[in-house]
Protein backbone atom coordinates (compact mmCIF):
# COMPACT_ATOMS: atom_id res chain seq x y z
CA UNK A 1 0.00 0.00 0.00
CA UNK A 2 1.33 3.37 -0.92
CA UNK A 3 2.13 5.51 2.04
CA UNK A 4 1.56 9.07 1.18
CA UNK A 5 3.28 11.58 3.40
CA UNK A 6 1.74 14.61 1.80
CA UNK A 7 -1.61 13.07 2.48
CA UNK A 8 -0.64 12.56 6.09
CA UNK A 9 0.31 16.20 6.36
CA UNK A 10 -3.20 17.16 5.36
CA UNK A 11 -4.79 14.96 7.93
CA UNK A 12 -5.52 17.66 10.46
CA UNK A 13 -8.59 17.76 8.19
CA UNK A 14 -8.50 21.50 8.08
CA UNK A 15 -12.11 21.84 8.94
CA UNK A 16 -12.28 25.29 7.58
CA UNK A 17 -15.55 26.76 8.45
CA UNK A 18 -16.51 28.89 5.54
CA UNK A 19 -17.91 32.18 6.58
CA UNK A 20 -19.34 32.75 10.02
CA UNK A 21 -17.99 36.23 10.45
CA UNK A 22 -16.66 36.85 13.92
CA UNK A 23 -18.88 39.84 14.18
CA UNK A 24 -20.45 41.26 17.24
CA UNK A 25 -24.19 41.42 16.95
CA UNK A 26 -24.01 37.94 15.51
CA UNK A 27 -27.64 38.02 14.54
CA UNK A 28 -26.78 39.75 11.29
CA UNK A 29 -24.71 36.98 9.85
CA UNK A 30 -26.09 33.59 10.83
CA UNK A 31 -25.35 31.38 7.83
CA UNK A 32 -27.89 28.85 6.59
CA UNK A 33 -25.21 26.45 5.50
CA UNK A 34 -21.50 26.10 6.05
CA UNK A 35 -18.95 24.22 3.99
CA UNK A 36 -17.04 21.88 6.28
CA UNK A 37 -13.86 19.92 5.68
CA UNK A 38 -12.90 22.15 2.76
CA UNK A 39 -9.32 20.95 2.48
CA UNK A 40 -9.87 17.42 3.75
CA UNK A 41 -7.96 14.70 1.96
CA UNK A 42 -9.54 11.53 3.29
CA UNK A 43 -13.14 12.72 3.31
CA UNK A 44 -15.00 15.01 0.93
CA UNK A 45 -16.20 18.41 1.94
CA UNK A 46 -19.81 18.70 2.98
CA UNK A 47 -22.38 21.40 3.26
CA UNK A 48 -23.54 21.57 6.85
CA UNK A 49 -27.20 22.50 7.16
CA UNK A 50 -26.91 25.15 9.84
CA UNK A 51 -30.50 26.33 9.44
CA UNK A 52 -31.85 22.87 10.14
CA UNK A 53 -29.67 22.49 13.22
CA UNK A 54 -30.92 25.82 14.51
CA UNK A 55 -34.46 24.43 14.22
CA UNK A 56 -33.76 21.09 15.90
CA UNK A 57 -31.57 22.24 18.78
CA UNK A 58 -32.99 23.81 21.88
CA UNK A 59 -30.45 26.54 22.38
CA UNK A 60 -27.55 28.02 20.46
CA UNK A 61 -25.49 27.17 23.52
CA UNK A 62 -25.94 23.47 22.74
CA UNK A 63 -23.08 24.00 20.30
CA UNK A 64 -21.81 27.53 20.81
CA UNK A 65 -21.37 27.52 24.59
CA UNK A 66 -21.87 31.03 26.03
CA UNK A 67 -20.79 32.90 22.90
CA UNK A 68 -24.22 33.78 21.55
CA UNK A 69 -25.32 35.22 24.85
CA UNK A 70 -27.92 32.57 25.58
CA UNK A 71 -28.07 31.07 29.02
CA UNK A 72 -25.54 28.34 29.81
CA UNK A 73 -26.32 25.66 32.33
CA UNK A 74 -22.93 24.07 32.82
CA UNK A 75 -21.83 24.99 36.36
CA UNK A 76 -18.23 25.25 35.18
CA UNK A 77 -19.17 27.92 32.64
CA UNK A 78 -21.58 29.84 34.84
CA UNK A 79 -18.75 30.78 37.17
CA UNK A 80 -17.54 33.31 34.61
CA UNK A 81 -20.15 33.48 31.89
CA UNK A 82 -23.41 33.96 33.76
CA UNK A 83 -23.77 37.48 32.43
CA UNK A 84 -21.03 37.68 29.88
CA UNK A 85 -23.37 38.41 26.96
CA UNK A 86 -22.70 37.67 23.28
CA UNK A 87 -19.03 37.33 22.33
CA UNK A 88 -17.09 38.86 19.49
CA UNK A 89 -16.27 35.38 18.30
CA UNK A 90 -19.01 32.84 17.68
CA UNK A 91 -17.66 30.58 14.93
CA UNK A 92 -16.05 27.28 15.91
CA UNK A 93 -12.75 28.12 14.31
CA UNK A 94 -12.68 31.48 15.97
CA UNK A 95 -11.65 29.73 19.20
CA UNK A 96 -10.72 26.16 18.27
CA UNK A 97 -7.44 26.04 16.39
CA UNK A 98 -6.91 23.59 13.53
CA UNK A 99 -3.49 22.59 14.90
CA UNK A 100 -3.85 22.21 18.68
CA UNK A 101 -0.68 20.11 19.02
CA UNK A 102 1.77 22.01 16.85
CA UNK A 103 4.97 23.17 18.51
CA UNK A 104 3.63 26.71 18.35
CA UNK A 105 0.32 25.84 20.00
CA UNK A 106 2.13 24.03 22.81
CA UNK A 107 4.52 26.94 23.25
CA UNK A 108 1.65 29.40 23.39
CA UNK A 109 0.11 27.32 26.16
CA UNK A 110 3.40 27.29 28.05
CA UNK A 111 3.51 31.06 27.90
CA UNK A 112 -0.02 31.55 29.14
CA UNK A 113 -0.20 29.32 32.18
CA UNK A 114 -2.89 31.48 33.76
CA UNK A 115 -5.32 31.03 30.88
CA UNK A 116 -8.40 29.19 32.06
CA UNK A 117 -9.23 27.47 28.76
CA UNK A 118 -5.91 25.67 28.41
CA UNK A 119 -7.51 22.30 27.74
CA UNK A 120 -9.50 23.46 24.74
CA UNK A 121 -9.99 20.91 21.96
CA UNK A 122 -8.77 21.73 18.48
CA UNK A 123 -11.23 22.44 15.67
CA UNK A 124 -11.54 18.88 14.46
CA UNK A 125 -11.93 17.52 18.01
CA UNK A 126 -14.42 20.20 19.03
CA UNK A 127 -16.65 19.59 16.03
CA UNK A 128 -16.60 15.81 16.23
CA UNK A 129 -17.18 15.80 19.96
CA UNK A 130 -20.08 18.16 19.52
CA UNK A 131 -21.66 16.42 16.51
CA UNK A 132 -21.07 12.80 17.50
CA UNK A 133 -21.84 13.55 21.13
CA UNK A 134 -25.22 15.10 20.39
CA UNK A 135 -26.14 12.58 17.68
CA UNK A 136 -25.34 9.73 20.05
CA UNK A 137 -27.13 11.20 23.02
CA UNK A 138 -30.26 12.21 21.12
CA UNK A 139 -30.18 9.04 19.02
CA UNK A 140 -30.74 11.29 16.01
CA UNK A 141 -28.37 11.99 13.17
CA UNK A 142 -25.41 10.02 11.87
CA UNK A 143 -22.68 8.74 14.18
CA UNK A 144 -20.46 6.92 11.71
CA UNK A 145 -17.67 8.56 9.69
CA UNK A 146 -19.32 8.19 6.31
CA UNK A 147 -22.70 9.06 7.77
CA UNK A 148 -21.64 12.71 7.59
CA UNK A 149 -18.83 12.91 5.08
CA UNK A 150 -18.27 10.54 2.14
CA UNK A 151 -14.79 9.05 2.02
CA UNK A 152 -12.59 10.07 -0.88
CA UNK A 153 -10.56 7.68 -3.02
CA UNK A 154 -7.49 8.69 -1.04
CA UNK A 155 -9.47 7.88 2.09
CA UNK A 156 -10.36 4.43 0.78
CA UNK A 157 -6.66 3.78 0.17
CA UNK A 158 -5.77 5.09 3.60
CA UNK A 159 -8.31 2.87 5.36
CA UNK A 160 -7.57 -0.09 3.07
CA UNK A 161 -11.21 -0.31 2.15
CA UNK A 162 -13.50 -0.33 -0.87
CA UNK A 163 -11.40 -0.79 -3.97
CA UNK A 164 -8.31 -0.96 -1.76
CA UNK A 165 -9.59 -3.65 0.59
CA UNK A 166 -7.10 -6.43 1.26
CA UNK A 167 -7.58 -9.31 -1.14
CA UNK A 168 -7.86 -12.72 0.42
CA UNK A 169 -4.46 -14.35 0.01
CA UNK A 170 -4.41 -17.48 -2.11
CA UNK A 171 -2.70 -20.42 -0.51
CA UNK A 172 -3.33 -19.31 3.03
CA UNK A 173 -5.98 -21.86 3.71
CA UNK A 174 -6.98 -23.47 6.92
CA UNK A 175 -8.59 -20.45 8.58
Amino acid sequence: MKSDRSLQALIPLLLLLAVLLPAAGWGISVPDSIILNKNGALYDQISFDHARHIRVTKECSDCHHHTTGTLVEDPNCIRCHRNSGPSQTVSCRGCHTPDPFSAKSLRDKDHAPKTYHLDKPGLKGAMHQSCVGCHTKSKKGPTTCTGCHPRSAAGDAFYNTGEYAPKPKAGKSGH
Binding site: Q8, I11, P100, F101, G122, G125, H128, Q129, V132
Partner: peptide
Protein backbone atom coordinates in the same frame (compact mmCIF):
# COMPACT_ATOMS: atom_id res chain seq x y z
CA UNK B 1 0.20 10.22 13.47
CA UNK B 2 -2.54 8.66 15.62
CA UNK B 3 -2.97 11.86 17.62
CA UNK B 4 -3.08 13.91 14.45
CA UNK B 5 -5.86 11.89 12.89
CA UNK B 6 -8.08 11.19 15.90
CA UNK B 7 -11.37 12.93 15.06
CA UNK B 8 -12.52 13.00 18.66
CA UNK B 9 -9.31 14.34 20.13
Amino acid sequence: ACVDICPQE
